[in-house]
Design a protein around this nucleic acid. Structure first.
Lengths: 132, 132
DNA sequence: CATAGACCTTCCAGCAGGTGGAAGCTCAAG
DNA sequence: CTTGAGCTTCCACCTGCTGGAAGGTCTATG
């Protein structure tokens, strides 16, 4: 399978697939004409990467997961540890963003948004008033 | 005030402060010895940057906000528009992360996390089962 | 058989937003 | 006078791609 098909079937751009090969996440065969030739196993790896990346795993985490993926003697607990750490990250990010949301909402709501030059958002960000 | 003090008082690393100068976000004076000399106005800008960046504004958005900040004839509505757009971004990010959280939580909860080699997380990420 | 256009290849550059380190100057304390 | 902290510039590197140039290849049509 050519890279275009692999791209379409994995949901990843061809550029990204070549990049993943560059950094050693997969090594597809080459056809006689020099074109990359993706097997169904390669396609599995690509789909795995697409999902894991979109779930917020870093490329390095994906690399770890892929090495566990290919290892039939791996322990389920190893994988769970990575996923659980990621879940903690996500929890933290949501909490941070929610904090920002509250702060920014306060700023926006206190702004009259008209033609007067004074603006509570600018004042708030400049630290003239304490937002906490 | 030297860069070290400015760093401590603004909450930004000295490296980052120099970087912000490089990209034209501020232009502190220079003392006779060549050291950067930060005024209280500079410090305001740095604190502004620290807060705005931590609130998720991009550097370019900060640049816009700073130009509005210094412009006494700016319209409050301009600032409100930027902040409101940012709030939408944050809402969207929180929704996305919450989606990921649900998915990943399902995977982690379905994983027995023991010494057996089969692992629902790997299986889920590899697309063998549909998660939706 | 020629040619057009879609596909593939490699390589090089750049994006955001910094961070790390080397080499060298300056300042304050003892 | 020396030591160590702090400052300077410059250059490279980080993540995770993305865009583009220059060129080879494949397929359909005339």
């Amino acid at each position: 399978m050519n890279i275009g098909d692999a791209a379409e079937r994995s949901g990843l751009p061809a550029k990204t697939i070549r990049y993943y090969e560059d950094i050693g996440l997969l090594k597809p065969d080459r056809a006689g004409n020099g074109y990359r030739d993706y097997s169904t196993a390669d396609l599995h790896r690509l789909r795995f990467l697409q999902r894991a990346r979109s779930l917020g795993f870093s490329v390095e985490e994906c690399r770890q997961l892929l090495s566990l993926y290919g290892d039939t003697r791996r322990e389920s607990a190893d994988v769970k540890a990575i996923a659980t750490a990621k879940l903690d990250d996500i929890d933290r990010k949501i909490r941070e963003l929610t904090g920002l949301q509250v702060m920014l909402r306060q700023l926006v709501d206190s702004c009259h948004g008209d033609h007067r030059p004074d603006c509570p958002i600018i004042d708030g960000l400049s630290g003239r008033h304490d937002l906490h």
